[in-house]
Design a protein around this nucleic acid. Structure first.
Length: 277
DNA sequence: CATTTCACCTGGTGGC
DNA sequence: TGCCACCAGGTGAAAT
C-alpha cells in the first residue's frame, strides 16, 4: 500500500527523472471516477506545460507545472496524483510495452513518458490552476514536521481507538495501515487504546516512533507488499523490517510471543500482546 | 459534530 | 486443472 514512505520514494524518483521536462500530448483512459475533474480538462491543462518539480504532500504526489512558453520556473498549475491502493506512477521510455490498467500517459521530451497504472482504480488524478483554485494542501498535519504540542492536540478528546486516529487523514496526512501498526508496536501502545486516554509521554513516544519508522522506511525505498514499486519500477525493502504488519502468528522480534491479528477500523491490525499495553 | 460502517475495484489465494 | 468465494485496504459517502 502506498503510504507516506512509498509516496515520498515515488515523488523523489519522478522529480529526478521528470523535472525540467516538457509535456507533449496527454492521454487518459475512459474511467471517469479516476478523475477529480474531467479527463479532457486535465489533458488540455497539462499539454505543453513544463514540469518544474515533483513533491509529496501526505499521500499525494504533486507535479508542479510551469508555463507553456519559455523556461520560467514559476508554478502556474499542479497535477495531483493519489496512488490509492495499487497505483503506480512511472517514468518509462515511450517504447516500452504499456502495462494493463494504464490510465494516463503524458508524453515527455527525450522519448519518455509519465504513466499512471492502477489495476484497482482506487487512485485519483486532479488538475488545478493556482490562479483559480490555489495550491493543493493535504488536510492533516505532516507526520515528519508536526511538533510535540500539535501532535498532542490532534488527539485531545478523541474517543476513537488510537489506530483509527492515526489513519484519519484529516488529523495526520500520510499514515496508512502498515505504518500505523509498526509505529504503535515501536511505541509499545495497544492499537485499541482510546486516543484521548494516552498520556502526553505516550503520545510523544508514539510521535518519535512514527518519525523513526517513516524515516527508516524512506531510507529503504518503502515497503513492497502487494505490488508497490517506485517511479523506476523498482521495489522497496522495508517489508523485511516489519515487526508486526502481516506477521500474524510469527514470533515477536522483541519477546517471542506470537503476533496477534484483529480487525479494527475495518482494517487488519497486528500487534504483540506482551509488548503493547 | 464524532464515529462507524460500507461500497468502490481487481488480482491473488485457497478450497474443492 | 478449473472454478469460485473471499480477502486486501485508502477514501469518501452514508448511516448511526
Amino acid at each position: 500500500m502506498p503510504e507516506l514512505p512509498e509516496v515520498e520514494t515515488v515523488a523523489r524518483g519522478a522529480h529526478e527523472m521528470a523535472a525540467g521536462a516538457r509535456i507533449g500530448s496527454a492521454w487518459f483512459a475512459a474511467h471517469p471516477k479516476l478523475f477529480k475533474n474531467p479527463a479532457a480538462l486535465q489533458a488540455e491543462g497539462l499539454e505543453g506545460r513544463s514540469i518544474v518539480g515533483v513533491h509529496r504532500e501526505g499521500k499525494h504526489i504533486v507535479c508542479e507545472l510551469g508555463a507553456r512558453e519559455g523556461r520560467s520556473k514559476k508554478v502556474e498549475a499542479q497535477w495531483i496524483v493519489h496512488l490509492g491502493m495499487t497505483g503506480r506512477l512511472l517514468v518509462a521510455d515511450s517504447g516500452l510495452p504499456v502495462a494493463r490498467h494504464t490510465h494516463a500517459r503524458l508524453e515527455l521530451d527525450g522519448g519518455r513518458e509519465l504513466r499512471f497504472v492502477d489495476p484497482r482504480r482506487f487512485g485519483r488524478l486532479e488538475y488545478r490552476e493556482l490562479a483559480r483554485e490555489g495550491a493543493f494542501r493535504a488536510a492533516g498535519a505532516e507526520p515528519l514536521e508536526v511538533t510535540e504540542a500539535e501532535f498532542h492536540g490532534l488527539f485531545h478528546g478523541r474517543k476513537m481507538p488510537i489506530k483509527a486516529a492515526l489513519l484519519n487523514q484529516k488529523l495526520l496526512s500520510g499514515v496508512g495501515n502498515i505504518y500505523a501498526d509498526e509505529s504503535l508496536f515501536r511505541a509499545g501502545i495497544r492499537p485499541t487504546r482510546e486516543a484521548a486516554r494516552l498520556t502526553r509521554k505516550e503520545l510523544e513516544g508514539l510521535r518519535l516512533s512514527l518519525v523513526e519508522v517513516l524515516r527508516a522506511a524512506i531510507q529503504a525505498g518503502g515497503s513492497s507488499v502487494s505490488d508497490y514499486v517506485d517511479a523506476r519500477g523498482k521495489h522497496g525493502f522495508f517489508q523485511l523490517e516489519h515487526c508486526v504488519y502481516q506477521r500474524t502468528g510469527e514470533a515477536c522480534r522483541q519477546c517471542g510471543e506470537p503476533i496477534r491479528r484483529i480487525e479494527l477500523a475495518g482494517r487488519g491490525t497486528h500487534f504483540c500482546r506482551k509488548c503493547q499495553r
